[in-house]
Design a protein around this nucleic acid. Structure first.
Lengths: 351, 351
DNA sequence: CGCACCGATGTTAACGCTAACAGTCTGCAG
DNA sequence: CTGCAGACTGTTAGCGTTAACATCGGTGCG
């Protein structure tokens, strides 16, 4: 017993409770709690004494006890479906970080497809989840969103904006970003610019395409239909699209791919065809994933603040859930974060 | 009040407590607890009744209360330093998953360098962390490990094995993996095989190199010093190494890079030099990160079960911490997980 | 037939913290 | 002086769960 206590005292910070600190500082536990939580109504001298005691004893508050007492802990689900790993890791970092801050437990679920997404959502609801975060393409699934609405589960989408009452969202202005990128290409002097689309079921695809078209229209350039080719955000689909574009007799001088994976595929295809980038062909992407800086030349792209987006997502979700708990109606909130145009080495004036 | 209660009853699963279930099932809370926790000593009929009640009321246990009562919650830190994002996301997924299971709170900290790592470790210790998980290159820093030993903080390394009392580890057999890869190249008929090293301060580098050398030695082949070149695991360092190797008059027919990033760089360099892969040059990597399947051709590599590794890491760490809490001495535990040789499209017999 | 014992369930008392309320002690207006 | 606001601190009572012990019918056996 003595031995155990010794070990405990030696290393087991976990056993230092608020009561120990209170005793050491000669105050009540409540006062310690106030100090720890930054309550202003504590005399400076008292506060110092308490802080001193905390320091000496190496006290750190017990999260579980606090959650229990304040009834604050939330449980939210994060659903993702086959994103690029850099998107995923950035998102996870943001989520983890924010979750710790606002005492939220996150359940991360990978969904192979829409079907799987529906199943997961149902499971989570049954398990009593407080809210759900959806990333594309699940965020674009009306089916999933309807299910969430019907079960009155709070929900927020990342990367896609849905103008619907029951869903909040965090995203960037895809339209403006695509437009800025296209303007950049135009400024460089390109006139024959191709676009590789993303999956048709994702809103981002349409928005980016619209931005692309708008920029060209503003410059008085007609977009040849043949220069807008299908893609599905995957590297493989990018290879196919690039081959199609590069085998044209009058091939484009610039290719704007709807994401970095497809841009990277375009670069690879160009290399295989002995086409120099950026000398003979300009390629640019979207997302600023790791891939963009990994291949050679590095890809000019649009940076999305993914980590911030997921942090914001948790915040918004928390707000909705607390509103609901307090008996208020959660309000819809669409946050648009700033993107950043990142110029690298894959663009140049046309040959 | 009534309104609030109604809302509560309507949606607030959180408010259904074990007592409600107990009441509904006509038993005591303790019995419900036993059912929920799978205690065998409950009569089948009772169990059914309780499960029925749980179902009806949509009860789900309150994590915080459970943690508090069982004093089980652990807090561990995960330190990483500039890994590839696929490594990171795989690791995070494993950690998140396992952490939820064993009621552990994870603090993820990025460390820019060794200096930063030391600082973070100190902070975490001061904050009362129970244990720490280190990934390379921090896992190879004697300085950091010494600090942890001195503060008696439990620690485990991922990806690198340290044969030291106070640190457990999860890793794969780098030596055997490199040897298997090299044997594969030898079987294909390669005799002039180059090796691109990783950072010299990481154990994995040496182990892989040793495996490489052993395979060649076993085949009775001398390794020309010029064919073993420096690298630092980064794409950029890979470019440099590859240029050196490919500009040789008698260039190697196969290049084994110490990780996928450098293998990808080698592929890119080869393409720039109009060298066909795998027709004229075989390239293989290590790690099986996303990059390996993203570029063309896809890289033959060694797959590390990173998600499983991080799950195991949490398990081991938990074991050490619980041992300590129970007054026992935590035992060192080095787990070696199975790697997998993954053949893709970047290797072929020599021309 | 009684006693030890076992399996199923209930009771009690924490776990560590904080909300809500209850003082206590100033200083200062009346 | 009295009293009363206001600044500070203490007390009480949970939050929802489980560990540890208590209880209570049986079962089997000497």
């Amino acid at each position: 017993m003595v031995t155990k206590r010794q070990i405990t005292a030696r290393k087991q910070h976990a056993r230092v409770t608020i009561a120990d600190v209170a005793h050491a500082a000669g105050v009540s536990p409540m006062t310690v709690s106030r100090v720890v939580n930054g309550d202003a109504r504590v005399r400076a001298t008292t506060r110092d004494a308490v802080n001193q005691a905390i320091e000496t004893l190496g006290y750190s508050p017990n999260k579980a006890a606090r959650s229990l007492a304040t009834a604050s802990q939330l449980q939210i689900g994060l659903l993702y479906d086959n994103p690029s790993s850099s998107f995923l890791s950035a998102m996870l970092l943001g989520v983890l970080d924010q979750a710790r801050r606002c005492d939220t437990q996150v359940v991360v679920v990978e969904c192979a497809d829409r079907e799987d997404g529906m199943r997961s959502v149902r499971n989570l609801i049954a398990a009593g989840i407080d809210g759900i975060i959806l990333s594309p393409p699940l965020a674009d699934s009306t089916e999933v969103l309807d299910l969430l609405r019907d079960s009155r589960t709070q929900c927020i989408t990342i990367g896609t904006r849905r103008d619907e009452e029951h869903v909040s969202s965090v995203s960037i202005d895809n339209y403006a970003a695509a437009r800025e990128m296209t303007d950049h290409l135009l400024t460089l002097g390109h006139r024959r610019i191709a676009f590789i689309k993303g999956s048709p079921d994702q809103l981002a695809t349409e928005e980016r395409l619209a931005g692309f078209r708008a920029a060209l229209a503003a410059a008085g350039i007609d977009v040849a239909d043949e220069l807008v080719v299908d893609g599905r955000f995957s590297y493989r689909s990018g290879l196919k699209a690039a081959e199609k574009l590069l085998s044209m007799t009058d091939r484009p001088t610039a290719i704007f791919a709807c994401n970095d994976d497809m841009a990277a595929a375009t670069v690879a295809t160009a290399h295989r065809n002995r086409i120099d980038i950026p000398g003979e062909l300009t390629v640019c992407g979207f997302d600023d994933t790791l891939l963009a800086t990994t291949i050679w030349p590095e890809i000019t792209t649009i940076h999305q603040p993914i980590t911030t987006m997921s942090q914001t997502a948790i915040d918004l979700l928390e707000k909705r859930i607390r509103a609901l708990r307090d008996g208020r109606d959660p309000e819809q909130d669409d946050v648009t974060l700033e993107f950043r145009f990142v110029r690298r080495g894959s663009d140049a004036p046309p040959p």
